[in-house]
Design a protein around this nucleic acid. Structure first.
Lengths: 294, 294
DNA sequence: TAGATTGTTAATCGATTAACAATC
DNA sequence: TAGATTGTTAATCGATTAACAATC
């Protein structure tokens, strides 16, 4: 392996995995691929209600996108609709499932069986869409031997054998951040070529290996950013208006920046705390250690 | 509330929340906002190692992006670097923290204390970056009264009072999908304006409310898509090559599509299973019911 | 045939990237 | 001063969207 290590196609939300792979392998844009599961979910719900056909308008509403985007997305898959009528629900469920590779079985290993690993092991959506938990793994002897979701937790040392015998190509990492890269290396070495990483760590993988990231901390921070802006825009919610950034002052203050290093030199209305707060908020942020053993 | 309900700015990965809000509030693109937490994490690690300054090249490598992108991103925040030198780590930590709104405290409520809710309650990264769990809530009497991460699980009926007295503006939904919209409505009604949704449901919220989504099932499906492509591209990994989609056959087959509804009419090399598989894989996919009570 | 709805075009918008002048 | 590195420009690329001709 190690054909040319490259950082994962990180950049979180905007373009997860967009840089990876020839991407538009069969000409399907990444943005479209990322929406196919949404359509599939909406279609499955319609299917359960025995709805025979659906228009792009209806389906788009159910999936939370606009209809032009949906039709454009579907156009990459082929011409599966009927003008004047709409789309056959069952047929579309099948076509999208096939396009996503869900008509086959995907054995998955979960490494790191803490709270989160447990939650994932129990996750119903796992099995229901072609994914099957092949094994739960952990390096901690105290955890090995216990069981989660009816499956025994096995030792990391069994990884290679499990991956080989069960043809596992997808690995889920739910270890503490410190162990993530090491676990990742071992997964890749064993033959896993797709990784879903819950640890707040940038993983480095060889070409040909896909990494996707799920990061609670980042999502919350993005929400906080927008939340902060709201305070400044809607003075009716009289909460922390005094906490918002002045804005124009910012540019001017930039000039004074480095002179005193991190010392407060700016004229914000804010408390202007030092970057190195010392107390809480300075720890290994994004640390999942508290959540699970490695 | 209900100023004009609109579906969340879904479309999962590509542009989470991009449509929402005036977005580039202070002129910062969504894609940049989504990367700021990554930079912050890398900078925090450097800070802990007492590294005084860092170049765009080094920091970009640590964050897993390219340096041009990083410099462009930083340019939206202001001129915080020094040509020929780089960026002052502490100062940049502070600036990004402030930009993201992390210099203030964000009380958060978690609704739905199953496995996942537990995992999140214990999540170390929560407290370490300005987020504080104000309360754990659940509607199930069997769960209410228990404790998680040292906090008592309180009943949903206390939601309104908690949100008001603690000025909670961020809510995390970890309920089963069936309860998510209802919980969301109640959160919004109580005054919450940012929601992080772990339930596999498209939430509808009024204007002014941000929704971000974390969806394990979707991430796995995206991985499966790419994994499927790999099988067709690298014949050396002799696994499920026979499972890949033929491709050219697709277009031709499209013509025959609707005639027999979902019936197999195509000439794939595949097993060509019916869309309505009947057995497993047809259930309420993405169901988190198994994970936690509501 | 008339009405409905798809599939596609083309315009627009936002994000990425390389390159380099500015400047420490 | 010479070397290093930022901040910005401009070109490129990909994604979104409205509009509408094709067609059921």
């Amino acid at each position: 392996m190690a054909i040319g290590r490259s950082p994962q196609s990180s950049s979180q939300t905007p373009d997860q995995g967009a840089a990876r792979r020839p991407s538009r392998a069969r000409g399907i844009p990444e943005a479209t691929v990322a929406r196919l599961p949404l359509y599939l979910r909406a279609l499955t719900a319609l299917s359960e209600r025995s709805v025979p056909t659906v228009s792009s308008e209806e389906l788009a509403a159910a999936a939370g996108v606009n209809s032009a985007k949906l039709r454009k997305d579907f156009s990459y898959l082929g011409s599966y609709g009927t003008r004047g009528v709409g789309y056959d629900v069952e047929y579309l469920v099948y076509q999208i499932s096939r396009e996503l590779g869900l008509t086959q079985d995907w054995p998955v290993v979960i490494v790191g069986i803490g709270n989160l690993g447990h939650a994932l092991a129990n996750y119903g959506g796992f099995a229901s869409r072609g994914f099957r938990v092949a094994a739960l793994l952990d390096a901690d002897p105290a955890v090995v031997g216990s069981s989660a979701a009816g499956l025994p937790v096995r030792h990391m040392d069994e990884l290679e054998e499990i991956v080989e015998t069960q043809a596992v190509s997808i690995g889920v990492i739910t270890t503490p951040p410190g162990a993530a890269q090491q676990v990742c290396d071992r997964l890749v070495e064993a033959g896993v070529t797709s990784i879903l990483n819950f640890a707040p760590t940038v993983l480095t993988v060889p070409d040909g290996v896909d990494v996707r990231k799920v990061d609670l901390s980042i999502e919350l921070q993005i929400l906080a950013f927008h939340e902060q802006r709201k305070a400044g825009e809607e003075p009716d919610r009289g909460e922390s208006v005094l906490d918002r950034a002045p804005g124009p002052v910012r540019a001017a203050a930039a000039k004074l920046r480095r002179a005193a290093g991190a010392s407060a030199k700016r004229t914000d209305a804010k408390a202007e705390p030092e970057p190195a707060k010392g107390g809480p908020g300075q720890g290994p942020e994004g640390d999942l250690s508290a959540v699970m053993p490695a």
